[in-house]
Lab assay of single mutants.
Amino acid sequence: QIFVKTLTGKTITLEVEPSDTIENVKAKIQDKEGIPPDQQRLIFAGKQLEDGRTLSDYNIQKESTLHLVL
């Protein structure tokens, strides 16, 4: 699982696999929060994550925290 922290300070927990794409993660966030993926920007280690890449591409491991910017 990974954590996604929103600007409001809320933390969302997501069940993911390293092979999941960023697009996939955004879809999971939409399921939980109702935020359309095209409004979501995910930041990890100061980098904006691209939809077509996977979590493992960015070396995002379990218990990692991503930041969600709208």
Results as ranks from 00 to 15, higher is better:
Q1C: 13
I2E: 00
F3N: 05
V4G: 01
V4H: 01
V4W: 01
K5N: 07
L7I: 14
T8M: 11
T8I: 08
G9S: 04
G9H: 05
G9K: 03
K10N: 08
K10Y: 15
T11C: 14
T11N: 06
T11M: 11
T11F: 08
I12Q: 02
I12Y: 06
L14D: 00
L14S: 00
E15Y: 13
E15C: 15
V16P: 01
E17G: 09
E17H: 14
P18E: 11
P18D: 10
S19V: 06
S19C: 12
D20I: 05
T21R: 07
T21N: 05
I22Q: 02
I22P: 02
I22A: 02
I22K: 00
E23T: 09
E23Y: 13
E23L: 14
N24L: 14
V25A: 02
V25W: 01
V25T: 03
V25R: 00
V25K: 00
K26T: 02
K26E: 01
A27F: 14
A27E: 10
K28C: 05
K28N: 04
I29A: 01
I29H: 00
I29D: 00
Q30M: 14
D31T: 10
D31E: 15
D31V: 13
D31I: 14
D31G: 10
K32R: 09
E33W: 12
E33N: 08
G34P: 02
G34H: 07
G34K: 06
I35D: 03
I35W: 13
I35G: 03
P36H: 14
P36D: 08
P36I: 06
P37D: 04
P37I: 15
P37L: 15
P37G: 08
D38E: 13
D38L: 08
Q39M: 11
Q39C: 11
Q39K: 11
Q39A: 10
Q39H: 09
Q40I: 13
Q40T: 05
R41M: 15
R41I: 15
R41F: 15
L42Y: 03
L42K: 00
L42F: 03
I43Y: 14
F44W: 10
F44Q: 03
F44I: 03
A45N: 11
A45K: 08
A45Y: 08
A45W: 08
A45E: 15
A45H: 14
G46E: 05
G46R: 04
G46H: 06
G46Q: 05
K47C: 14
Q48W: 11
Q48A: 11
Q48K: 09
L49R: 00
L49D: 00
E50W: 05
D51S: 07
G52Q: 11
G52S: 12
R53V: 07
T54C: 08
T54I: 06
L55S: 01
S56N: 10
S56C: 07
S56M: 15
D57V: 04
D57C: 04
Y58D: 02
Y58C: 05
N59M: 07
N59D: 11
N59P: 03
I60C: 03
I60W: 02
Q61Y: 09
K62G: 12
S64L: 04
S64H: 08
T65I: 14
L66Q: 01
L66K: 01
H67F: 12
L68E: 01
L68P: 00
L68R: 00
V69G: 06
V69K: 07
L70R: 08
